[in-house]
Design a protein around this nucleic acid. Structure first.
Lengths: 233, 233
DNA sequence: GCGCTAAGGTCAACGGCGTTGGCATAAGGA
DNA sequence: TCCTTATGCCAACGCCGTTGACCTTAGCGC
């Protein structure tokens, strides 16, 4: 089989599948996103992808080395969507805040895909572009190089980490989702105050709070921390 | 098949497997943790578990409803390890810090298992105990109920989110790990300054920074934020 | 001690998965 | 127009989780 996948920009012979469509990386990634949304994060399979694109599953190996590489491409597409149309405003704090929220939002918009991709380093074009943008903003904030890297790390990891966690609960298949709901309503809400006094005291508040994202609050704390660094330096 | 799994504490008939060992939830979870460490986070399969325990894979269904329930049990065991032997010191900030670091460390100690479990709500005994402990500490800090819930949410999500992210890179199978290394060394380190000036300027610093965890720094920021809330309230 | 019941073990099979080697065909440069 | 070879398709391999039927024996009531 194709030991060497022909890179997208070098493709010349564009032969249609039995369904008549001409494939491309873009088309495959888009179909994968559709499948993920419809069938959940475990619903992306080579066979289903073939079915959706009306081609043989093995054809996908002409475009990607395997399912894993398709997943990386999906991740890069999400980052691309996050950055699409963004222009820096020039004020580091507002810019960083917007970037964080945009990246988080882009992942949350495709939770099933986010689950598969948030913790992968792809080295693909959009990921590199995003890193470059964030480092540029930090540079404009006037941080010394050593602190720039530390802050960059904290910022990007916190954003991805919350995106992953928030996506995970949004992406649970319906059965598991309902199971978790049941856990919250039955187990937590009915714990006897004798053994678990603190949970019992605020179980309803908990159930309401835990369905929202803690990311915006955490982001603002981080930005405060960066501001403090600048003041000191 | 067993529509109803007999709960562990109700087990009476303890029949040995063909290998002569008598099974239990504990034994199964321990074997699973061993498999995960040896074969990576995708290496936990019912067949392998059967091989490791010298029993038929279908026997596992007498103890758990399926692989997913085994994964939840593994997660609960990790939380149990994190809390094991911990006693509150009475000072809320030190207590919260210790709790966060212990939970993070317990997951990081089993990265392949952490990848599978960090974002799951189990409702099992150890998880409930941990929640109770954290809420107890926040209560002792004197926060009003509404803020207790918000802070609890931010604290626990941040801890789990970073644990998941940090575990994910530690848990990558060797092949993928080497691939990411290559990305850092080749792609990032050799980007031309013309297209990616900021990355090119600090690539060596980045490569060194990105292999550590940003959690301790993020945790301290959060604790600062809580302290500020108390001062205000 | 003895029998009965059913818990808990085993076995074989199902459908689905990612991936691969071999083959057919048609695109596009010469 | 011909030839090469990129790119599509097919069939098959060895995994996977899960299930239903079967069998064995532990442990209870007497």
């Amino acid at each position: 089989m194709p030991k060497t996948v022909v890179p997208e920009e070098k493709r010349r012979r564009r032969r249609p599948t039995r369904g008549g469509t001409v494939l491309s990386e873009r088309l495959i990634v888009e179909a994968a996103l559709r499948l993920l949304r419809e069938h959940g994060s475990a619903g992306l399979t080579a066979r289903r992808l073939g079915l959706a694109l009306d081609c043989d599953p093995s054809t996908l190996y002409r475009y990607f080395r395997g399912m894993d590489e398709i997943i990386l491409a999906i991740g890069d597409a999400l980052i691309g969507q996050a950055l699409h149309g963004w222009v820096p405003g020039g004020e580091w704090r507002a810019d960083l805040r917007a970037l964080g929220l945009r990246i988080h939002a882009a992942y949350i918009a495709h939770p099933q895909a986010a689950v598969l991709t948030t913790s992968r380093v792809t080295g693909r074009a959009n990921e590199l572009a995003a890193d470059e943008v964030v480092l540029g903003v930090l540079h404009s904030a006037g941080l010394p190089a050593a602190e720039t890297v530390r802050v960059y790390h904290a910022f990007i990891d916190q954003t991805l980490a919350f995106a992953a966690l928030d996506a995970a609960s949004l992406a649970l298949p319906n059965a598991a989702l309902r199971a978790e709901e049941v856990v919250w309503r039955s187990t937590y809400a009915r714990l006897p105050a004798s053994s678990h006094p603190h949970i019992a005291g605020i179980a309803p508040l908990l159930a309401a709070e835990m369905v929202t994202s803690a990311y915006p609050a955490a982001l603002d704390l981080l930005l405060n921390g960066i501001a403090a660094l600048r003041g000191r330096g």
